[in-house]
Amino acid sequence: MSTTEIIFWFLSALAIFSAIMVITRKNPVFSVLYLIVTFFAISGHYILMNAQFLAIVNIIVYAGAIMVLFLFVLMLMNLNKEGEPRKNRYLLWSGVIAGGMLMIVIIAALQTSKPEIVDSFSKGDIGLIQNLGMALFKEYVVPFEISSILFLSAMVGAVVIGKK
């Protein structure tokens, strides 16, 4: 077992464990914290695959900004109490079974696909800012600008909804 594999298994286990914790914790604040752990694990996978830029962005945007936003909302509304009424048992199990079925079915569907190796440490610097930046501002400059408009409209929308 090489170092890469050890790291891979560790990160995978961490991601799955914390994801399960996200959906099982009663206190929403814990859910948020476990979700941040999950994101860190996924960022670790990004680094493992030479996608350094995405790894950083993931941590900054998701773990840093979005999750903080979630926390803010929770704090502002004072929802960190464990007062959430449970769903009834029947619906709870049906949800779990449905989710599990989905996983099994998709995995089973992909069983027959041809195996392909992802060379984790192969050379290549496509994940670096230089390469991605060149592509982003050349081929993808229009979507990039449009996404700025999307942000503007989202901001306006959030303000309008929040003011009501």
Binding site: I16, A19, I23, T38, A98, G100, M103, I106
Partner: peptide, 8 residues
């Protein structure tokens, strides 16, 4: 697996 956990 992560996706299915999300769905669940």
């Amino acid at each position: 697996i992560l996706f299915s956990i999300g769905v669940t």
